[in-house]
Design a protein around this nucleic acid. Structure first.
Lengths: 329, 329
DNA sequence: CTGTTAGCGCTTTCAT
DNA sequence: ATGAAAGCGCTAACAG
């Protein structure tokens, strides 16, 4: 049985409230008593029961983080930023997954709601936000990261997707490339949409006609990158330049090329989003826009913290980071 | 303000205890009352407050998961197994990081202890276990994953490291290779030690003398793989076969080779542990032992669950998985 | 400076 | 079948 304040009170002969005061650093206690209590607490191995404290204070010092997939390095870098930042203010983070579907997402949100988290950081798995609004709308602050939802306006932290993908595609065009294939992410998702806009904008500004057969959408995961790259390569007149919307689709695309194109002397070029530890091993990926993943998490955490503390300013606040640039080789 | 049982009681004219009974599925309540209460609860948007429930029941239905680094795909696959499995029994998981140091690990453990988790799954960052024992030793079940600690015997789930690395090294030797370099992980860590034993055993059984200059230990992270590979390649008489102790060190080693050896026609061969999405892009890695990462998590979770439910059988229980084999190309 | 008291929201005997 | 009452461990007025 864990030691409680009562046990310490009994042992030291003071009241429970005095023990509570000492242990929560109340200065208005005689040095004498402080010492006695602290010593006893230490000796008895006292650990505060935060469940009881939370019930009393109506504050759990816990925030929820929901993302589509927990083994995804991109999401976890954001989670790392969140955790690092919030830890400093005494919060812990419960990480939940939506497994890329709205039902699981809603389930996770419900659990977190019942655990009485003080705030939520969500990387939504779709463009739907009603379930978020219903559960947390007016009771607990919510910050979105990486993506927005259509039907719930709240604080969010993202990157300048359109500008970055414009720059990437425009760069290829300036080098004389005109047939640039587009490997998109899940079309429901903000970042996929915005990166596509950037692509279109670059073509338009350079007066290049859109070729619908050069545009394909996947789901931001490896297999879709593999499959789409395969389809492109099997066209009668395959493109040689590619914009790939995220890291995992790059891995898939590079794997396809590695398996089936290794002996061909084609000069293929890939540009796209993000850069991870293994990226320098990619053979065709040339230039990438790299999101400041940890910083996205840190910023989302800061924003959330402000809201938890009661800051009502400029709601909703959408914060956009610029990407960094990476050149391979 | 969230709706409480009291609110529902007031609204429906029954007592708080009746509402509680209905909502926790007690059958000994008139169908009439059940309906009324349920309807009211739904209409008012009632959500149980698990903080209060936990305090009363002395059970939080929360377990802690502590690992050295949250952005590490290997650890997160284990976490995924844990989360998937435990979710089915109504538990949620708080994931914390030790940042690869014992102080942070102890800090995380303390927080989890204060949050009154029902159990712990730990991937320890070193061979030290006293802080774990002191905090949880007799109050709350602890299962270790991937690694053991020296001074605290408890349930654990690992793989057959020695046998796997023996097989890998022996395989190279049988192909006539005699100078196999060893790139080790953090020497404090079980898996690093056991993989080294397997290497030594393979040399010994094949009557090959150990060459100390072919043995180097890193820390299981990319940079150490890079650095050690560099050192090996800069020897007067560099080895051509390598055993690399984990995936991240493989990435580092492959990156070094990619940067500095790309035009040389050396026939280098790498074997080692684990296989991730990007592994097929590795140029030199030939054969790997792949740990069933998700299954390790699942098993650890099952074990923990049994202990939480009070199973005292055969303590401590050490469960070892066999690895799978992967051949590149 | 310290003790007494009340109560956070819930579950659970014990009555009835 | 239902209600009254106690209490989980803690904090916070309010007294003194």
């Amino acid at each position: 049985m864990p030691v409680t304040l009562k046990d310490i009170a009994k042992k030291t002969g003071v009241s429970v409230s005095t023990v509570s005061r000492v242990l929560s650093g109340d200065k208005a206690i005689s040095v004498q008593t402080q010492q006695t209590v602290r010593k006893a607490a230490k000796k008895m191995g006292y650990r505060v029961n935060t469940v009881a404290r939370s019930l009393k204070m109506n504050r759990t010092y816990t925030v929820g983080f929901v993302c589509p997939e927990i083994t995804n390095e991109f999401f976890m870098k954001i989670a790392k930023g969140v955790e690092q930042e919030l830890k400093q203010s005494g919060y812990s983070v419960i990480i939940c997954t939506s497994n890329e579907n709205v039902e699981d997402e809603a389930r996770s949100l419900r659990i977190l709601r019942e655990k009485c988290v003080d705030g939520m950081i969500i990387i939504p798995c779709s463009n739907e936000g009603m379930h978020i609004k219903e559960l947390f709308g007016d009771s607990c602050p919510v910050v979105l990261a990486d993506r927005l939802v259509d039907d719930f306006k709240t604080d969010a932290v993202l990157v300048n997707n359109e500008a970055a993908s414009f720059d990437l595609v425009d760069g290829l065009i300036k080098k004389g490339k005109k047939r640039i294939a587009f490997l998109g992410g899940n079309e429901l998702i903000t970042s996929a949409k915005e990166r596509f806009s950037g692509y279109l904008k670059a073509l338009k500004e350079n007066n290049i006609a859109v070729e619908p057969e050069l545009i394909r959408f996947g789901d931001f995961y490896l297999q879709s990158g593999y499959d789409i790259m395969k389809d492109f390569c099997e066209m009668k007149n395959p493109p040689k330049e590619f914009f790939i919307s995220n890291y995992f689709m790059q891995v898939g695309a590079e794997r396809y090329l590695q398996e089936y194109q290794k002996n061909k002397e084609d000069e293929l070029t890939i540009v796209g989003f993000d850069n991870m530890d293994a990226s320098p091993l990619f053979r065709f990926t040339e230039r990438t826009a790299v999101q400041p993943m940890v910083a996205i998490g840190t910023e989302a955490a800061r924003l959330l913290h402000r809201r938890i503390e009661g800051d009502k300013e400029a709601f909703p606040l959408i914060s956009r980071f610029d990407v960094d640039w990476n050149v391979n080789d």
